[in-house]
Design a protein around this nucleic acid. Structure first.
Lengths: 211, 211
DNA sequence: GTATGATTCAAACATTCGTTTGATTCACCG
DNA sequence: CGGTGAATCAAACGAATGTTTGAATCATAC
């Protein structure tokens, strides 16, 4: 089973990156939690940077594929096209936090933090991994928000991404703020609240155009 | 001028925390940029943690004072009460990024990242510094958004904070996304876009209540 | 001018980091 | 069985981290 150590390293790295941050998680912690030798990371991934990249790529590729799949199923001319597009964007990553082989849960937090990572190397890595998906969504926005000018569309897409990232990365704050009243780990609840809020924001009249 | 070194250390730490992250900015970088001796940080602040706390406290105290001052000036029964409250919340930190003694510019990015800091110590430090301000805003929300139930109000306040934090922390991404079309460093422009979007989101009908 | 306390300084402290090395173990095929 | 390459291992590498130390320097007041 050569794959076992590789996967164990990715799982441990994902969990520890999520909990302590990328820089603060040491290779010694990671390899110990994975039950592997210290040198295993450099053997399998070349370096810590290689490990970081692999951690993101493992989840981001299928994540963006699922997004684009759902986006393709949206009816962009329906009355609720905005809600459909938002759901296709938000649902895949929200679901990630609850489902399947346990480890995926951590990736949400890690991903929510990735946009504002201090390390430029990490930010560029993530940005380039997400960019093609972003371009498709901006294109969809041009169809479902024709009354906005291009700058407004980009601003509002930025806000959508911000609310999503904050919801995912800062669930601890939401729960403390609400005294447990709001549970951001429940994907259906989080999705509903997000879509309602963001769809209304996207529908706000243009600040410049007459229409 | 005993204050000179203290302030220089705070300025350098603020800039380097903002650029490289709190953990990645070393005391040697900080003291060198401040023109001080390596031991100066431990002398003036006791430890690196003490320095971090001082960096946040220096800006957060006046920031929250200004927020509450502006909030007190809002007419919560006016038609545009929502816009007024949002402006009072967003404007102070957006202005910080452009104005005054140079260093403040960096604090926005640092603050935008603070909510999702990996270090729990830092997060709690910032949370406790901001909490009283948050409580006042939640109270204002109860007045201007009476049709929502409490959970919805907290969710939406969370989204407001998220869009703001993302706008401040990830301006680089907005500019790259738009090819320079959107300039988040312009506080008036950013405020206008944010308020338009967020006010519409806050006005979305309740998902549960009948009204 | 000299004494006192605050401040600065160069140097070293013990840890920890990511990475490398070279030997050892393992699985698999001829 | 013997051999070949992948995989794992303990050990050490050099560099960087936050912190501490004790002497040197400064400003201030008597």
């Amino acid at each position: 089973m050569e794959h076992d150590t590789r996967e164990s390293l990715l799982d441990a790295a994902e969990a520890l990156f999520s909990e302590h941050g990328i820089e603060a998680a040491s290779l010694r912690q990671i390899t110990q939690q994975a039950g592997a030798n210290l040198a295993a990371v450099n053997y399998h991934f070349g370096s810590k940077d290689g490990l970081v990249q692999a951690v993101f790529a493992r989840r981001l590729r299928p994540l963006n594929e699922e997004r684009l799949l759902l986006l393709g199923e949206c009816n962009l001319e329906a009355d609720d096209a905005i809600e459909q597009v938002l759901s296709s964007f938000l649902l895949p990553i929200l679901r990630m936090r609850r489902e399947r082989p346990e480890g995926i849960r951590d990736f949400g937090r890690l991903m929510g933090r990735a946009y504002s990572e201090p390390s430029e190397k990490v930010r560029e890595m993530v940005t380039e991994e997400v960019r093609p998906s972003i371009d498709h969504y901006l294109e969809a926005f041009r169809i479902i928000l024709p009354n906005l000018d291009e700058a407004e569309r980009i601003w509002r897409f930025h806000f959508v991404a911000g609310a999503m990232a904050h919801t995912i990365a800062c669930n601890h704050m939401l729960e403390r703020l609400s005294g447990g009243l709001c549970q951001s780990t429940n994907p259906e609840e989080a999705l509903g609240q997000l879509v309602t809020f963001l769809a209304a924001g996207l529908r706000a009249p243009s600040r410049t155009s007459s229409n």
